[in-house]
């Protein structure tokens, strides 16, 4: 089975080489890439391998996910209108985009205020029923911070460009960002609606020195799971009653066997896909 996957990945790589950044169909081997512009004050164009990926890109905006073939990409950010050969505001060469990955590339300031590009792989694995996934990424020219929800620290001592993540019960939380180990609020508080089965990614960006720290939020949905069961009785009194199924027990059995047979047939033909492929 691993060989099959390797073959498919290899084929994808070959196809990718010829397709470059042509708008790709939602093939299983494509990666999904979003780009967040988190450098204050400048409208830019983004090029990948010399092709325009995003144009007239304003600070604080996030693109929709773009399906791109897996491979290595040379990324270049220039002032809007400067063209592929324009002066690079930021450049990152050989950025690896794995097959099937969900990635957000962030143009942001590093801790000292210099523009950089950071690719983050978004966790699209299944989320337990009732839970939401919260990730915070420190992309601001600012020192280490703590992120609090309802006043309680959720993530501590986060430094640029690190991220931290946790699955927590779905719901609305009041979040703020404080200087690490202090109560000095630098961003927020802001109400975050953490929807069940959804990955909410919060970006802290901007510059503390320029007093323009902000939050940007990305959500990735579709990772929800079913509850582990329906425990629908606690007494046992109904068990004695005629439930209309008494004579059909063999059908349940037959159905189960049929299902098992079919499942066997289908499974033997299926190529396993990574869990993240559910997020399309």
């Amino acid at each position: 089975m691993k060989n099959i996957i390797r073959t498919i990945v290899a084929a994808a790589a070959l196809t990718g080489a010829s397709l470059a950044l042509a708008p790709a169909a939602h093939a299983a081997q494509d990666a999904h890439v979003s780009v967040l512009h988190a450098v204050p004050g400048v409208t830019v164009d983004v090029y990948a391998n010399g092709n325009a990926l995003v144009t007239d890109f304003k600070p604080g905006t996030l693109t929709d996910p773009m399906a791109v073939p897996a491979g290595d990409y040379d990324l270049k950010v220039v002032a809007a209108g400067d063209g592929a050969d324009g002066k690079a505001l930021i450049e990152a060469n050989g950025v690896g985009v794995p097959a099937g990955a969900n990635i957000t590339v962030v143009a942001h300031l590093d801790a000292s205020g210099k523009p950089v590009l950071t690719p983050y792989v978004n966790d699209t694995s299944a989320i337990a029923a009732g839970q939401a996934r919260l990730t915070v990424r420190h992309d601001a020219a600012a020192p280490a911070v703590d992120v609090r929800a309802g006043g309680d620290p959720v993530f501590t001592d986060l430094v640029n460009p690190k991220e931290d993540s946790a699955d927590i019960p779905a719901g609305t939380v009041s979040a703020d960002v404080v200087l690490a180990g202090t109560d000095q609020v630098v961003i927020g508080p802001a109400d975050l609606q953490l929807a069940e089965g959804v990955h909410t990614i919060v970006y802290a960006w901007g510059s503390a020195a320029d007093d323009n720290l902000k939050l940007a939020v990305q959500t990735i949905s579709g990772m929800h799971s079913a509850p582990s069961g329906v425990p629908g009785g606690t007494g046992g009194q109904a068990a004695g009653e005629a439930d209309g199924f008494a004579s059909s027990g063999w059908m349940v059995l037959a159905g189960g066997l049929l299902a098992a047979l079919l499942a066997g047939l289908l499974t033997s033909r299926m190529i396993p896909r990574p869990a993240r492929s559910r997020n399309r």
Binding site: H32, L36, G188, D191, L215, Q218, T219, S221
Partner: peptide, 20 residues
Amino acid sequence: PEATGLPGEVLAAGQAEGST
């Protein structure tokens, strides 16, 4: 797929300004 077909979205968080 079970997915909603909305793989990624952005929204402003509370007072976050400048976000789409």
